[in-house]
Computed example of a mutant assay.
Amino acid sequence: MNINPNITLGPVSLRITNLEQSIAFYRDALGLTVLRQDEQTATLGAKTTPLVILEQHSTAKQLPKNSVAGLYHFAILLPNRKELGFVIRNLIAQGIELGQGDHLVSEAFYLSDPDGNGIEIYADRPRDTWTYEANGDVKMTTDPVDWQSMLVEAGEEDWYGMPAETVMGHVHFHVKSLEAARKFYVETLGFDVAADASRMRALFLAAGGYHHHIGTNVWSGVDAPKTPADAVGLKYWTLIYPDAASRETAVAALEQSPYEVNRQEDAVYVTDDAGITARLLSKG
């Protein structure tokens, strides 16, 4: 089965320890807007597009980096380089530590939220500039970003937070094995292999010719334990089908698979062998 090429990604739901602290970070550092909030949860997004759902678990433990299967990072895609420059300017002004990578197809920066949940913020280069290996894999690497010219593009203009066109670009997971990731994301959900980076112990998967919607790696070790429910981390990520029919086709395939499928009123949830849960929605 091939996945519908017009899928998109929706918000990630995260377990965090202190709602006020996390809201302040996502709002003031990243420029997200609080869309909904109650005592234990909050949804933040780019203007009206939800990107992050926070759920407070005040006693949740923070595990050592790269010690379990689960979230490596979620990646927020800005519409252009100038908008990314605004965010970077704000993060630098706040003294927030950033990693960076020019991946040829995109320019990206990396940081963590107050609970250590990994975040990437990035802007894509135009698709007609992407290059490909002889086998058809999209070419990606990690070079230094020319962030100074990005700040020049942003200039001294006032910034009004992440723009409405901002979306969830991709999600990247620590998995139990690349073979298991291939079985779930390619053979069951139907994603294409965009780049087989198994020499780097990673595998990148996509729909519709994108450079990747899903990144997977075994950098926490092969057969890494699942993230326990009493730890901070990912509760679920969201996969949005363009219509109800394409989602039902996907769910039918999942119900014939060995993975745990849970139909709720609002969505269908499926959990892979690494304990990573996808929430499947449809636009129609």
Rank of each mutant, 00 (worst) to 15 (best):
L54K: 03
E120D: 04
L51N: 01
S67N: 05
K65C: 07
L51T: 05
V34T: 10
R36D: 10
F74A: 05
N117A: 10
A108M: 09
A60E: 07
N90M: 03
E83L: 05
L78I: 00
G101H: 08
K61W: 10
P79L: 04
A69R: 07
Q100A: 15
G99F: 09
L84K: 08
I53S: 09
L63R: 07
I88F: 07
F86C: 06
I92H: 06
P79R: 10
G99Y: 08
H103Q: 09
F109A: 02
Q37F: 04
V52N: 00
Y122Q: 01
Y72D: 09
D38T: 08
N80L: 03
I88L: 14
L71Y: 03
R36F: 13
V34C: 05
Q100F: 15
G95Y: 10
Q40M: 12
Q37A: 03
I96E: 06
V105E: 04
N66G: 06
V105S: 00
G70Q: 06
H103W: 08
G118F: 02
T33I: 08
Y110V: 15
K65N: 12
Q94G: 04
I96D: 05
V52D: 02
I92G: 04
L71G: 00
A108G: 07
G45A: 05
Q56M: 14
V68G: 00
Q37N: 08
A60S: 12
K61H: 11
R89E: 02
T43P: 02
P50V: 12
L98V: 13
G116N: 12
T49W: 00
Q62I: 15
N90G: 05
T41F: 05
H57M: 12
Q62S: 13
K65S: 13
Q40F: 09
T49L: 00
K47I: 14
Q62R: 15
N66S: 13
T49G: 00
G118N: 00
F109T: 00
L32R: 06
P50Y: 11
L91P: 08
G101Y: 01
G116A: 13
E107V: 06
L54A: 03
E83C: 12
K65G: 10
Y72G: 03
V68D: 00
L91R: 06
L77R: 13
T43Q: 08
T48Q: 11
A93K: 15
I53R: 12
H103P: 08
Q62P: 10
Q100G: 15
A93D: 13
Y110W: 09
G118A: 04
E97K: 14
T49N: 13
L78G: 00
G99Q: 12
A75H: 10
P114F: 10
R81I: 14
L91E: 09
K65V: 15
N90R: 15
S106K: 14
L77Q: 12
D38L: 07
L98N: 12
D38I: 11
G70C: 07
G101E: 07
D38M: 04
L71V: 07
E107I: 08
N80I: 02
P50G: 07
Q94D: 04
T43R: 09
L98E: 10
H73A: 03
T41L: 04
